[in-house]
């Protein structure tokens, strides 16, 4: 195959991959609104039940970060309170205030308006008057 053909293929492929990474970027709110945040501990007792305002450009992670002490997974899935490691689908939240999970045995399960969330805290859509509930789940359940 000619080098020029290979380079042409490569340019097209690299453009495609850049576009795909753009598709995976955070889902930021386009307006403002209010959400309810509920956090349950392992015994399913509600620990946090609060309403928060969100603004244009916010994500659920940003809203949570403004109000709570968060623990995220670092690149080795160890707890990291800086929450600087973002995976391709955003951050992995391990803990909110006193409710902590360890990734290997327990994890935070997110529900939006009572239904299992398809996205994580960086990518889930912020919708006015919605509630976002976090539960501690065992990996083997």
């Amino acid at each position: 195959m000619k080098l020029i053909t290979r380079i042409a293929y490569t340019v097209v492929a690299v453009s495609l991959i850049i576009g795909l990474f753009f598709l995976l970027s955070d889902n930021e709110a386009t307006g403002k609104g209010q959400i309810d945040v509920l956090v349950y501990d392992q015994s399913e007792t509600v620990v946090i039940e609060e309403s928060h305002l969100f603004y244009e450009g916010d994500t659920l992670f940003k809203v949570l970060q403004r109000h709570y002490d968060l623990t995220c997974a670092d690149s080795q899935y160890n707890p990291d309170t800086d929450c600087e490691t973002s995976f391709s689908r955003g951050r992995i939240l391990l803990g909110i205030d006193g409710v902590q999970t360890d990734w290997n045995h327990t994890f935070l399960y997110l529900e939006k308006d009572g239904s299992m969330a398809n996205y994580g805290v960086d990518n889930i859509e912020l919708e006015d008057n919605s509630d976002y509930a976090f539960y501690v789940k065992n990996v083997n359940d």
Partner: peptide, 17 residues
């Protein structure tokens, strides 16, 4: 789909080169 796209593009480039 985006992850499949990333894998597909990576496969294409790595095989090509």
């Amino acid at each position: 789909l985006p992850f499949q796209g990333i894998m597909a593009t990576t496969n294409f480039l790595t095989v090509l080169w």
